[in-house]
Amino acid sequence: MSGAQPVFEVDGLKVAYGARDAVFDASLRVDEGEVVALVGHNGAGKTTTLKSAFGLLAPKAGTVRFAGEHIVGHDTEANVRKGIRFVPEDDFVFRQLAVEDNLHLGGFAMGREVGRASVERVFEEFPVLAERRKQRAGTLSGGERRMLSMGMALISEPRMLLLDEPSLGLAPVLVRQVMDLTHELAKQRGLSVLMVEQNIDQAVRVADRVYVMRAGRIFLEETADQMRARDDWWDLF
């Protein structure tokens, strides 16, 4: 994008699990309206980076800025209220609760600002969910659950989405749908998206820029065009 300040900036992030270091000195940025993919091998540290940026894990060192404001150490409630939403890679709906209750919970941190009207708006956007509003989320299909998880994140009208492996467990046609939705959210609604993915094909298809992570370090940053131009990606992993 232009020279405007990035909406999301991670600088020198170090994360450890107990004594074991998992992420070393990770830095990345997301500009407004961008879709940025963070790709890499199983266990490269992508999810750890994402969770630490959001506040689900505490980093050992480093800074994270959202719209210029430092957010490390803030709890997830504060981050949600600021407009950042996180969608986990699995177990991303409340299975025992009904679809509409899930949506209400998606907006919980916003308090009164998110009410019935917001839930209805999500249903308008995802009619499939509306048909199943009273159904228990555990009984939905994989794709419908993923859709619900997106709805739960969007209900608070966020500025930024952190998606952890959105394609996981989905059939190819559904993966395309999810990626297209992500692209649309960014381009038509101005959301900024940081997406961790193992499905590089699909991620690169809709992303603007790509970071590649290996063994806890981000060692490559390219535009999506540059990535797409490569013959293959095997040497990256």
Binding site: T76, N79, P88, F92, F108, A109
Partner: peptide
């Protein structure tokens, strides 16, 4: 875990 992700304390 999901609750925390949703911003529930």
């Amino acid at each position: 875990e999901l609750s925390r992700a949703m911003g529930i304390n």
